[in-house]
Simulated assay, not measured.
Amino acid sequence: MIALELTYRPFAPGWLIAVGAVVLVALCLFFVVRRPLERTAWLLRILMVAALVGILVRPGYGTVPAKAKTSDLEILVVVDRTTSMSALDWNGSEPRLNGVQADLKELTEEFPGARFSLVTFGAFVRTELPYSSDSQAFLAAAEVMTVEGAFDGEGSLVDMPLEVMTESLDGAKKRHPERKRLVVFATDGENTRDGAEQRSFDDIDDLVDGGIVLGYGTESGGKMPVDPEADIDSYIYDDATQQDALSKLDEPNLTKIAGEMGATYQHREAVGGLDKWADDVDQSFSNEDDEFATKNEVYWMFALGLFVLALIELALAWRGFHAARRELKQL
């Protein structure tokens, strides 16, 4: 006979579960003593507390085979979300940001097990997701990205995220010097802020083992909707030309940035094509073919028990309600 080892993977700290359980049971016992007519209901609630504890401690037993990949890559993804990224010239007439989101999905497929971090920039810089191997969390963060409003910023500046990029990569290097670091920079390369001069990205080169600059847009330019979420065809207007404003790809600037960071440049016009660059990236995996012990969780049994007890509680309450109504009618 094979003995099964019980395991526990609680949803909350053990001390918190214990304190909560003691308080709730003590409260129920108090009412068991003080309200004899409701003793059955309060004893039932003690059982409900026990079932809830069973759920929270998350018990399990045995093992099932599972495979996992852990990559040695940490990838910092930086995305331009200025108004120009709403220009309708990717894959024909789609917003540039759609192209970014499609490319980020492809990246997670090309680098399974890698740790991704997502930073966006516009009028301000924001870390949307710190380094995480949870690709679904990364894709969820990418999916909800939106461009800033047409009148939110004071013009775009491609080097806006430079300090955050440097801090992020430097921190990753100090925490895990043995891992390789890549940078993915997604933008159209446009600088439209008056009087501002773009700083060099040379410092990034010392912190990464490679990367890629993804360029979006066309040389002829694309119109930018006033409200990308609206169905109305209304575009940002250029008072100087007295026509709809056009955002144009600045490919020379993107090539320059890629050179400064020691990265590759690629113009992005449609879905797919990142596999060629990804194939050249040197990455290794640990535990690629190992079997990991994955517990057979049984907390669902306690959840089912709690559901049944809740139904009984509801039935008792309903019966008490009808009894009270009958007594009122007899008055």
Rank of each mutant, 00 (worst) to 15 (best):
G273M: 02
D80I: 07
E148W: 06
T108D: 02
G259N: 14
T192E: 01
G221A: 06
V119A: 02
A293C: 01
L331S: 11
F321R: 14
G222A: 08
D209P: 02
N296S: 09
A141C: 09
A3N: 11
V213T: 08
G259Y: 02
D289A: 08
E74P: 07
A21F: 11
L249N: 00
E260N: 12
T82C: 08
V33F: 15
L27I: 11
L328P: 07
G259C: 05
G222N: 08
T82A: 06
N98K: 14
M48K: 09
Y8L: 14
D233R: 13
A245C: 01
K256R: 15
L43C: 15
L246R: 07
D205Q: 15
L249G: 04
S168C: 03
V213Y: 06
A278T: 02
L52P: 00
R58E: 00
R126A: 11
Y8E: 10
F292Y: 14
Q101C: 02
A310E: 04
D159H: 05
L37C: 10
C28P: 03
A258P: 04
M1E: 09
L104C: 13
L37R: 14
V213E: 04
P252K: 12
Q198T: 12
L16R: 08
I232E: 15
F31L: 15
H267I: 00
P36V: 13
E313V: 01
A141N: 06
A102K: 12
E313D: 15
Q266S: 07
T7W: 02
L24T: 10
D159Y: 05
D170T: 10
E269G: 00
D279R: 12
R9L: 10
E110L: 15
G221D: 06
E251N: 03
M301D: 06
L207C: 02
R199Q: 15
L52K: 04
T218R: 08
R326N: 11
L304H: 05
P130F: 09
A196K: 10
D282N: 13
P95Q: 10
S132E: 03
R34G: 03
E148P: 06
